[in-house]
Simulated scan of single mutants.
Amino acid sequence: MMSSPMWTVPRLLLAALAVLWALPAHAGQLVRVGAAHFPPYTVRPESGADTGLLPQLVEALNRLQSDYQFVLVPTSIPRRFGDFKQARVDMAIFENPDWGWKDIPHTTVDMGLEDAEIFVAQREPQRGESYFADLKGKRLALFSGYHYEFANFNADPKTLAQNYNATLTYSHDSNLLMVLRGRADVALVTRSYLSDYLLRNEKVADQLLVSQRIDQVYHHYAIIRPTAPITGEAFGKLLRGLRDNGQMLKIFQPYRIAVVPVPDS
């Protein structure tokens, strides 16, 4: 039996509506966020695994609104400046203007997040906080590409090796193992990473001496290209939204990353 023409049109309309409902909602303007290996913020993004705090932040930003779709673009600590200048990425997160950005046109957005770089040595009898007062003659284990305040933010590997007796790696775990095995005297590690490391390696906690001395406080900023799809003002409003709904605390507090007040712009 053939369908009545009267019923054919409504059925076609319903079918069309069903197709539209099945399509994904408009995702908004694409904002490419540079993802460089910087644990625990970003962990080996080139592997394609969404691990670290940056993927969590991006997911929270995308859940918050639909005007922008934030996506991660793998880069590296040294390469991120070139990727930014050549517009391969629109923004870099967990940055600081002192880390080589001053001559690159950009807008900064205060993220209201603070971490710290601290000194770690092997615990020994009679060794205390004074051990970290003078680094001369000590073998240092550093993360390649990082800008350290004690070295005037000079990240050049040759300078660090020659002037500070430093071994550079791409792994905080490796640097801490060097200290534990007596191959380095002092490692510099982000407080957030050390907190996570000690949770994963409880047995070595009493073997490590953690300094009260801080090399630098990481006050995190977002660095945005002048022609990026999102403005600094708009991104700042999104971050305020995450602060207000509690997502910033939920993501960062477990890693001892402080969520601090942001001055009015």
Rank of each mutant, 00 (worst) to 15 (best):
Gln216Ile: 11
Glu114Thr: 11
Asp98Gly: 00
Ala151Lys: 03
Ala116Gln: 14
Thr227Ile: 09
Phe38Asn: 11
Leu20Asp: 06
Ala133Tyr: 11
Leu61Glu: 03
Val31Ile: 13
Asp90Asn: 13
Tyr146Met: 12
Tyr41Gly: 04
Thr159Ser: 14
Val210Ser: 00
Leu61Gly: 06
Met6Glu: 12
Leu57Tyr: 06
Ile214Asn: 00
Gln29Cys: 07
Phe38Ser: 11
Gln56His: 12
Ser76Leu: 02
Met111Gln: 05
Leu199Ile: 08
Arg123Ile: 04
Ala25Asp: 12
Gly236Phe: 04
Leu12Trp: 07
Phe70Met: 10
Leu198Trp: 00
Ala187Phe: 06
Pro261Trp: 04
Val89Tyr: 01
Leu20Trp: 12
Ser76Cys: 05
Met178Asn: 03
Leu199Asp: 11
Leu20Ile: 12
Arg183Asn: 03
Pro78Ala: 06
Tyr197Ala: 08
Leu64Phe: 14
Tyr164Ala: 02
Glu117Cys: 04
Ala36Ser: 14
Val262Ala: 08
Pro261Glu: 09
Arg44Ser: 14
Asp264Cys: 08
Ala155Val: 07
Tyr68Phe: 15
Asp110Gln: 06
Asn201Gly: 03
Ala228Asp: 10
Gly236Pro: 11
Leu12Thr: 07
Asp134Pro: 01
Pro55Arg: 09
Ala18Pro: 01
Asp156Gln: 10
Leu194Asn: 05
Ala151Arg: 03
Ala92Ile: 15
Ile230Trp: 09
Leu209His: 02
Gly100Asp: 11
Leu188Tyr: 01
Val58Arg: 10
Leu239Glu: 08
Asp244Glu: 15
Val9Ala: 10
Met91Ala: 05
Glu59Thr: 13
Phe143Ser: 01
Thr107Gly: 07
Leu198Ser: 04
Ala116Val: 05
Ser66Arg: 13
Thr107Glu: 13
Glu95Pro: 08
Ala27Pro: 01
His37Gln: 07
Thr190Gly: 09
Ser265Ile: 06
Thr231Trp: 09
Ala166Phe: 07
Ala116Ser: 14
Asn201Lys: 06
Phe81Ala: 07
Met2Trp: 13
Asp134Phe: 01
Arg183Gln: 11
Val186Ala: 02
Met111His: 05
Arg11Trp: 13
Asn163Cys: 08
